[in-house]
């Protein structure tokens, strides 16, 4: 078990399915269990891809 901070709310969560998860990492939690690790680099990369898309305002009318 470990403590997971849900943005200001802390709950005891079972971390057994994420061996090696370290303090400071992000995880998806479901029904009291951390089930997936969150890849921060991938998150940022996805946001960069979105930001590179043309804004609707730049569209020709």
């Amino acid at each position: 078990m470990g403590k997971v901070d849900f943005g200001g709310v802390v709950k005891d969560v079972c971390l057994a399915y994420l061996p090696g998860i370290a303090v400071g990492e992000y995880a998806v939690v479901h029904a009291g269990f951390a089930i997936s690790r969150l890849d921060e680099a991938a998150a940022l990369e996805t946001l960069r891809t979105f930001a590179a898309m043309e804004s609707p305002n730049e569209e020709p009318l």
């Binding site: 946001l47 979105f50 930001a51 898309m53 043309e54 804004s55 609707p56 569209e59």
Partner: peptide, 12 residues
């Protein structure tokens, strides 16, 4: 704002 970009991309 990013949602707007994705929506525009879908429309295109």
């Amino acid at each position: 704002e990013l949602a707007g970009r994705l929506l525009a991309e879908i429309r295109r």
